[in-house]
Amino acid sequence: MPVFHTKTIEGILEPVAQQICHLVIMHEEGEVDGKAIPDLTGPVAAVQAAVSNLVRVGKETVQTTEDQVMKRDMPPAFIKVENSCSKLVQAAQMLKADPYSVPARDYLIDGSRGILSGTSDLLLTFDEAEVRKVIRVCKGILEYLTVAEVVETMEDLITYTKNLGPGMTKMSKMIEERQQELTHQEHRQMLFNSLNTVKQLLPVLISAIKIFVAIKSTHSAGVDEAERNRCFTFEKMSAEISEIIRVLQLTTWDEDTWA
């Protein structure tokens, strides 16, 4: 049984995957003296209408999105789903002529599997585009963290904190939502751990900058130490956000292969 990458995709495709699995088993068990399969023209027409609708909506999405990867990856999924649907139409025609037709059953199973696989490809492509949105926010935070190195006055620090706060809140919210979506327990845990570390380090970074600014402005001893401390915290936060970006791009397949 395929492992689906997110709970949304799993919720949509799992029931169909189960049924197709069931049909295949029955088909193999009953292949020789299988009973006649009833006329499937009606149910196939319903699949055909649903496929046309998905392709129409998908093409609209491809038209409007700025995500070049999605523009590239979606059309092959449409083709797969449409070709599979043609197989179902052929199966229905063959079964109408001969309800015992074994080739028709093969077409029926291949077509159903193709619809499942094509819809899964399409949903994964869409999901990957959603992940890229989260990664863009993470990269924005990574870039803004580097600004910490040039904060040298209290006014700068106030501005820096005011800008960093909302961005961090947005990033945390997006990652927490993403984490809830993942079906892979390890990935969820990795995101949870890294995000927690980043949240804990944020106030540490702000106070490290504050100490650096205070010492620098009074020309007291210890500027180097304060600078090293600020740098350490900044680098630790950056490493954790880079880890979050890495984990966000993992798919179930990567993890299993790695294992």
Binding site: I20, L23, K35, A50, L54, E60
Partner: peptide, 29 residues
Amino acid sequence: EQILEAAKSIAAATSALVKSASAAQRELV
């Protein structure tokens, strides 16, 4: 959202199709 809804209706339609095809086979098994 539109894509998810469209994918859900494909899944439902495919489910119904497979169910009707399996119905005939079930008697046998």
